[in-house]
Simulated assay, not measured.
Amino acid sequence: MEFRYLGDGKYFPPTLPNGDVYGSAPGVSASHPVKLMMLCDDRIQLNGIFLDWITIEGVSLGEGIVVLHSSKYRKRDFAFHCDGMVFRGYHGHEFKKTHQGYDVLYALMNRITFELQRIEKELDLF
């Protein structure tokens, strides 16, 4: 996928900036969103788990669940419900269901893809 820089920290296709993603995980009540992760420059922070971008192998969708794949921990996959994800950036206080007109989930998956492509380019020495 090719990401085009639009200026002011924005890309197309849209990528979530640093901030907090809220929603629900399998086995947890979906009635009230909880903080699922924090997006940072160098990693994704889950509840007590730090996944550096370089340890993330990808992200996939299936039957209402998004799965984050990582090589860092024995439990390699971290699953979340697709529905109801909202985002709150560091400088804003409101929760947003969309980013640049696209669902938060779409922009989250784009951010992961963007970071993986960036790392691949940095590691490609030849």
Score class of each variant (00 low, 15 high):
Asn47Leu: 10
Asn47Phe: 04
Gly64Trp: 07
Val21Ala: 11
Tyr73Lys: 15
Lys72Ala: 15
Asn47Arg: 10
Gly84Pro: 13
Leu68Glu: 02
Val86Glu: 10
Gly84Ser: 14
Val21Ile: 12
Asp42Gly: 02
Trp53Ile: 14
His93Gln: 12
Ile54Val: 12
Val66Gln: 05
Gly58Tyr: 12
Ile54Trp: 07
Thr15His: 00
Val21Gln: 07
Ser70Pro: 02
Gly64Arg: 07
Asn47Asp: 14
Tyr90Gln: 08
Glu63Cys: 04
Tyr73Ile: 11
Leu16Lys: 03
Arg76Ser: 11
Asn47Pro: 04
Phe95Pro: 05
Pro26Arg: 03
Ser24Val: 02
Gly48Cys: 14
Val59Phe: 05
Ala30Val: 03
Ser70Cys: 09
Phe87Gly: 12
Cys82Ile: 03
Leu46Val: 13
Gly27Glu: 10
Asn18Glu: 15
Gly92Ser: 06
Val66Glu: 01
Val28Leu: 01
Ala79Arg: 06
Arg88Leu: 05
Ser60Glu: 13
Gly62Trp: 03
Val86Leu: 05
Val34Met: 11
Ile56Asp: 01
Asn47His: 08
Leu36Lys: 03
Met37Pro: 08
Glu57Arg: 13
His93Tyr: 11
Gly23Trp: 04
Leu36Thr: 06
Met38His: 14
Glu57Phe: 09
Trp53Ser: 10
Ser71Thr: 10
Tyr90Ala: 02
Ala79Asn: 00
Ile65Phe: 07
His69Ser: 08
Leu16Asp: 04
Met85Ala: 01
Thr15Tyr: 00
Asp52His: 13
Tyr90Asp: 08
Gly92Asp: 08
His69Asp: 08
Met37Thr: 05
Leu46Ala: 09
Glu63Met: 10
Val28Ile: 12
Ser71Asn: 08
Glu94Lys: 11
His69Asn: 05
Gly64Ile: 10
Ile65Arg: 02
Gly92Val: 00
Asp83Pro: 00
Glu57Cys: 12
Pro33Tyr: 13
Asp83Asn: 05
Tyr90Ser: 07
Lys75Pro: 00
Cys82His: 00
Trp53Gln: 11
His69Val: 08
Thr15Ile: 05
Asp83Cys: 00
Val86Met: 12
Asp20Cys: 09
Phe80Asn: 00
Glu57Met: 13
Ile49Tyr: 12
Glu94Ser: 08
Gly23Glu: 09
Pro33Ser: 09
His93Asn: 15
Arg74Trp: 01
Pro14Leu: 06
Ser31Gln: 11
Phe78Val: 01
Val66His: 04
Ile65Thr: 12
Ile44Thr: 04
Thr15Cys: 08
Gly23Phe: 06
Lys75Ala: 01
Ala30Arg: 07
Leu39Val: 06
Arg76Thr: 13
Phe78Tyr: 10
Leu39Arg: 03
Gly62Tyr: 01
Cys82Asp: 00
Tyr73Asn: 15
Cys40His: 14
Gly58Arg: 11
Met85Gln: 11
Thr55Trp: 07
Leu39Cys: 05
Glu63Ala: 14
Glu57Asp: 10
Gly23Val: 03
Asp52Met: 11
Arg74Asp: 00
Asn18Lys: 13
Asp77Lys: 11
Phe87Val: 09
Ser29Arg: 00
Ala30His: 03
Asp20Tyr: 09
Leu16Pro: 01
Lys75Trp: 01
Gly23Leu: 07
Thr15Val: 05
Gly48Pro: 14
His93Thr: 10
Tyr73Val: 15
Val59Glu: 06
Asp42Phe: 07
Pro14Ser: 13
Tyr73Pro: 15
Ala30Asn: 05
Gly89Cys: 00
Ser24Asn: 08
Ile44Asn: 04
Gly64Ser: 06
Ile49Val: 15
